[in-house]
Amino acid sequence: MAYRETEKMRQRKAEARKRIVECTYQCVEEGGFRSARVTRIAGLAGVATGTIYRHFESREDLFAEIFRLATQREVDKVSEALATSGNAAERLERALRQFAERALRGPMMAWSLIAEPVDPKVEEERLAYRKAYAKLFEKAVRDGIAEGCIPDQDARQSSTCLVGAIAESLVGPLSPTQTSQSACATTDDNDSLVDSIIRFCMQGLTGIRR
């Protein structure tokens, strides 16, 4: 007689998977992907290490899942900012500010998503999400050109440059070495940094000195 999985068993598996994902997310949030060891994750989730591999083919697959989950949250926040009121340039500035401020509020997770050395499978996800950000920015730039608040330009190339500029400008401030040395950084310090990043991005985009 063929084995038939019961609803209760399916629910237990789903709950175990959820705990594994949540505990891995916690590990990455606290110490980056490098701190998310399978044995630690299993201990936090209350499962055997073999259980993790029944839900995910490899450690890299698990990390890719966490990367997708964490980055999609950030993409959604940028999308929300771009959907607010105001002209396209104002909305784009708001979205860039949202990106930078959220990164600085959660520096370890942001570092993990933006710059931490990762396995090829996770790096593929990083590239895919950079394209997702660029696509959102591209639409805003095109809207701005149509509205007349942004000069005519190659919207696709400009959006790619925006993603690169804001991500690269945050690498130093977010790096674990830097953040451990500047644990006493104030909100004013972060505000000044964000203002500087946004000023650079918007001046490059609009040609208007801010």
Rank of each mutant, 00 (worst) to 15 (best):
Y25H: 04
V118G: 09
L170N: 03
C23D: 13
R37H: 14
T160R: 15
A140K: 04
A110P: 05
S180V: 13
L205F: 04
C149T: 12
E147F: 01
S58F: 10
G172Q: 14
K77T: 07
R156M: 12
K13Y: 09
C23V: 04
Q72C: 08
D191Y: 01
Y129I: 12
G106K: 15
D154M: 03
D152F: 09
G148C: 02
E125Y: 04
G204P: 00
M109N: 11
T186R: 01
V28T: 05
P173F: 01
V141Y: 09
E93P: 00
P107Y: 06
A95K: 06
R17Y: 08
A88F: 07
Y3C: 09
I208C: 09
D119I: 07
D119Y: 10
G164L: 03
C23Q: 14
G46F: 06
R10N: 04
A183I: 08
C27A: 15
L69R: 14
A64M: 05
V171E: 07
K8A: 15
I114K: 11
R59I: 06
W111S: 07
A95S: 09
S169I: 03
D119N: 10
Q11R: 15
R4L: 12
E124Q: 12
A128R: 15
I166R: 07
G172W: 15
A167F: 08
K135H: 10
A115I: 12
T6E: 11
A70I: 13
R91M: 09
